[in-house]
Amino acid sequence: MNFEFTPRLKELSARGRQFCDEVLVPLEQIADEHGELPMDRRDAVKDQVRAWGLAGINHSKEHGGLGLTMLEQTAIEEQLGRVTNGLWSCVWRPPVSLKFGTSQQIKDYLLPSCAGHRRGCFAITEEGAGSDPRQVKTTAVLKNGNWHLNGEKWFVTSYNASDFIIVHAHVDNDPDKPTLFLVDKPAQNLVHLRSPKFMHNFAFDHAELRFDDVTVPEDRMLGKVGQGFELTKDWFVETRLQIASHALGAAIRATELANDYATSRHQFGRAIRDFQGVEFMLADMAVEIFATKTMLYRIAWEIDNGLDRKQIHAHASALKLHSSEMAGRVIDKALQILGGRGYMRENPVERLYRDIRVDRIWEGTSEIQRVVVAGQIRKRGLAVFSDWM
């Protein structure tokens, strides 16, 4: 069993880190002070993504992407996770569900999205529907060859960086008919209610939208009626690996900064790392990172090798749970080692501390991940997690 990175993986990892450090890190404080990446900076960053060969990292070459394996994507994503303010989202990853579109939809949406000429955001969450998407109240009714969408959506991430929306609605108000629709911006009767501020700052906004009888052509339905959950299953696995990768990258950066500070900071005549209280924190941080990295790359390997889809879903939930909570513990310790300086907004650790909290919430809360893991143990036995399949 060979765990060594191939030359290709090493090259992608190095490219991801260099891009992060040279292109994204210089934008961190600008984005933090502005609340998001300023509009006048966005096109230049897009050009850089293309120039560095990072456009469409999660799609096949046939669909305009880079054709990377999950291991290769993970090697890049881990390094992008080092940056604060969600600037990793500047490296676009078109929604996986687009690959299930018609040939015309792939031409109109997926191909230009991989090239960075279009961008889509995903609208599923509502005031009363989060972990339980069956509670979605947004409806889609077919009338005279057009779909009519009505409802409100919350937390539509990257709305102000997107020119189309993938909307999750229930056809005929039937929760057994969850269906996806492609809505181009601007759309008549689509109302941007607000883009609220959050604990962390992010490259783009998280909008609240209202669909007041928004008309969508019949051929803008993505997939078939009732396939809304099925078309997003692979997306949830992918996003959970992305979150885990970013959490790992954030934890590593925070630990590097804390380790350097513990060496250079002297009190009572010696480096603070020489005090056992600090030394043990660094040791615990390193062990958490080591365990998470091993878990992350194992699951990426499982995806590339076509392991059972249900098993991969279970492992991705376990990974998302562990990595998001690990990063919170590690970054908290890093801030403690840095002391007052770690509490300053100009310090990356302070921004990482704010950024990482949402990872225990979005794309499935920690509690939902525990439900998935426990359910798999109940149905399939502990071997799903305890054996090497």
Score class of each variant (00 low, 15 high):
Asp43Thr: 14
Arg345Met: 00
Val183Leu: 10
Gly16Lys: 12
Ser386Cys: 11
Leu98Ser: 06
Asp174Thr: 14
Glu256Lys: 14
Gly339His: 05
Gln29Met: 08
Asn160Arg: 06
His117Glu: 14
Thr255Glu: 06
Pro348Leu: 12
Asp234Ser: 15
Ala123Val: 06
Glu346Phe: 01
Asp213Ser: 15
His34Lys: 09
Val49Trp: 10
Pro7Cys: 07
Val371Leu: 03
Glu36Leu: 08
Asp213Met: 05
Asp184Ala: 03
Gln242Asn: 10
Leu149Trp: 04
Thr138Trp: 01
Ala14Glu: 07
Gly375Met: 05
Gln29Arg: 09
His117Ala: 07
Phe236Thr: 15
Asp32Met: 04
Ser162Met: 09
Ser366Thr: 02
Phe198Leu: 15
Pro196Leu: 09
Ile165Thr: 13
Asp274Thr: 15
Phe204Gln: 02
Lys320Gln: 02
Phe155His: 05
Arg345Lys: 05
Cys20Gly: 00
Gln29Glu: 05
Arg370Met: 04
Gly145Cys: 11
Ala244Leu: 06
Thr294Asp: 13
Tyr353Ser: 12
Ala44Tyr: 01
Leu296Ile: 08
Cys20Ile: 00
Ala244Trp: 08
Leu182Thr: 13
Ala258Ser: 10
Leu24Pro: 00
Met1Leu: 14
Ala140Trp: 11
Asn146Lys: 05
His313Gln: 15
Val214Asp: 03
Val45Trp: 05
Ala123Ser: 10
Ile337Tyr: 01
Ile106Phe: 06
Gln104Arg: 13
Thr138Pro: 02
Gln188Met: 12
Lys46Gln: 04
Ile331Arg: 00
His266Tyr: 13
Ala258Tyr: 01
Thr294Met: 15
Asp132Thr: 12
Val358Gln: 08
Gly86Asp: 03
Gln188Leu: 04
Ala271Arg: 14
Leu182Glu: 09
Thr215His: 00
Phe268His: 12
Gly56Pro: 05
Val371Lys: 02
Val237Pro: 11
Tyr343Trp: 08
Ala262Asn: 05
Asp47Asn: 14
Gly328Leu: 00
Glu208Cys: 11
Ala383His: 05
Leu209Gln: 07
Val167Gln: 06
Ala14Asn: 01
Ile312Trp: 08
Leu257Thr: 02
Arg253Trp: 01
Ser366Ala: 07
Met281Leu: 11
Lys185Thr: 10
Pro26Lys: 06
Gln18Asn: 01
Arg82Leu: 03
Gly328Ser: 00
Arg118Asn: 02
Asp213Lys: 09
